[in-house]
Amino acid sequence: MSKPIVATTSLAGCFGCHMSILDIDERILDLIELVEFNKSPIDDIKEFTKMCDIGLIEGGCCNSENIHVLKDFRKNCKILVSLGECAIMGGLPALRNGIPIKECLEEAYLNGPSVRENKKRIIPNDDELPMLLDKVYPCHEIVKIDYYLPGCPPSAELIWNALVALVTGDEMKLPYEVVKFD
């Protein structure tokens, strides 16, 4: 039987959840035995080359590109997992949800204390750049999500238990210490 195929991506996240995947340490060798990776920053495959079984989504949706990638994952993965607080509820990027976009951009590019060399006072607006959304959205408010793994980042233990359960079809182990929101 061929191995289950896993894809991963980081949307509006900090890559902390991906770091936590790597935090399974030497079990990464077992993981390679258990699954095959497709589109993912881990192997740098940029486009889906086949249908995948499991898609792990880090980060929520803050711009049009995030939406595009998330929908692409939904199309190409049988099971989608929201990995971490940002995917589940927007996380720290969603702290901007109460602030109008204009104010955010002006703070970032014109008025913020770290702005130095923007003499022409330009706010980047190239067509190539993804559009910012009005607010940061949790992934399940954009596409259907099948499972949720909380944490900032989710502990390596939680990710490992979940992957093993998904791959083997056994019930997932959820000891108290592994499900945390921070």
């Binding site: 929201s82 589940i88 927007g90 949800n97 949790p138 408010e141 999500i145 499972y147 949720y148 909380p150």
Partner: peptide, 9 residues
Amino acid sequence: MVPRFPFDF
């Protein structure tokens, strides 16, 4: 794991 209601922010 996730609230069943939409986030209000």
